[in-house]
Design a protein around this nucleic acid. Structure first.
Lengths: 216, 216
DNA sequence: CAATATAATAAACATTGTGTCTACTTATAG
DNA sequence: CTATAAGTAGACACAATGTTTATTATATTG
């Protein structure tokens, strides 16, 4: 999760890492608002002044972790070979979002604490909004590719924006529940469940009478 | 939206209303965190001390509006005649959540500003979490009724909790988008779109290859 | 309408946290 | 080794919170 890669002075790296770790731990203990700069530097065994040598304020510090997390996730997704996007192993739900979804749940499991903090909406409002936008962009991207490949109707039955926000919200909802309940399913399984609802729809999932609208 | 009904002293009602209105207006202008108690009482033309005669702090004041909003919505839903739950007029999507969904979008349209504030996550974290829990309870309630009527498989293909959180998240996502974009569709229409995605699923909505899982 | 109770107010105060600055010490890179 | 950069303690001004006190104003009620 590249966060201090090639900064010159050894002290700088150490200090920043200590501040980051102290802050995240404290947020989980008392919640963002209750944590003071003095708390952070105290926990990190540093002088309060030092904090301001590195960050403008609490939010700036949290934002750094967020940015690194986002960069890491999009990196992982981008680095995954295109080939895998078609041949990935859940033949029941062959949608184009399958692999990214799996990677995202996986990633959240690996960085559960930070994801929890973000999804709880700790810190300023921007934080969670940032994530949402990224998810929406990913969806729009995938949809655009699909349209180009003519696998999706040019005039979909639902406006893409509505679909994208539906998706982003549902994802956030399931991910939040999953994290707050200490990952009751393995990442691949929760991803599969998510896809099942998303692709099949409530009619099938709940066994309700089928809708009268045909596909497309 | 019952908020000052039978409080004895006329002054109390006036003061509380002024504080509430001033606060909500200011949040929309500068965001929750940036608003001080002095801002509020200034805007409301009251002494700063007066604020503390009525509320413990900013969050307390916001919470009052939230509680009233929630009570109002659940009241509206509860008051709607059961008969309407079956005969409501969207025959393409006859799901049991149809009418409550419509009522919710309607309600959000009528109180758009307050909904915006809440959905943006202004105020403390509790606020938005409160709403989510209410939505989840509603869903669980409806699902329980359905199960009792044996219209839903006893062992649904997806754990109810997962479905409920999927739903709650998707709803929040679409509702937020709708409000932040100044209600680009009428409430009935956005409710119908939401249901379409939810019931038919992405496969149909986007015209993807059908899943191999049958209903139920 | 008058008497009583209650609300609003201004002013002062202690407290907590922020963010900046200074002069001094310590660690590191080269 | 030494110049450079990072960390530190302490002091400071500032802004906002939440409480208290004494005083004024306004409803309610009988």
């Amino acid at each position: 999760m590249e966060l201090e890669s090639k900064r010159i002075d050894r002290r700088t790296n150490r200090t920043r890492r200590q501040l980051r770790e102290a802050f995240l731990a404290l947020i989980l203990e008392k919640g963002y608002d209750a944590v003071t700069v003095e708390d952070i530097t105290g926990r990190a065994d540093l002088g309060r002044t030092t904090f301001y040598l590195h960050y403008r304020d609490k939010n700036d510090l949290l934002l750094e972790s967020l940015e690194a997390l986002v960069a890491d996730l999009t990196g992982v997704i981008a680095r995954t070979p295109i080939a895998d996007w078609r041949t990935s192993p859940d033949p029941q739900h062959p949608g184009p979002l399958q692999l990214p979804l799996r990677l995202a749940f996986q990633h959240a499991a690996e960085h559960a604490d930070l994801y929890r903090i973000i999804l709880r909406g700790e810190g300023r409002t921007e934080t969670i909004e940032r994530i949402r936008q990224i998810v929406i962009e990913q969806i729009n991207h995938v949809l655009a590719v699909r349209v180009a490949e003519e696998q999706v109707p040019v005039h979909p039955t639902v406006p893409p924006e509505v679909f994208a926000n539906f998706f982003a919200g549902a994802f956030q909802g399931v991910l939040t529940w999953w994290l707050e309940n200490d990952l009751p399913y393995p990442p691949t399984e929760i991803a599969a469940l998510f896809q099942k609802i998303l692709y099949d729809g409530a009619s099938r999932v709940l066994g309700l009478p089928e809708s009268k609208t045909g596909p497309g």
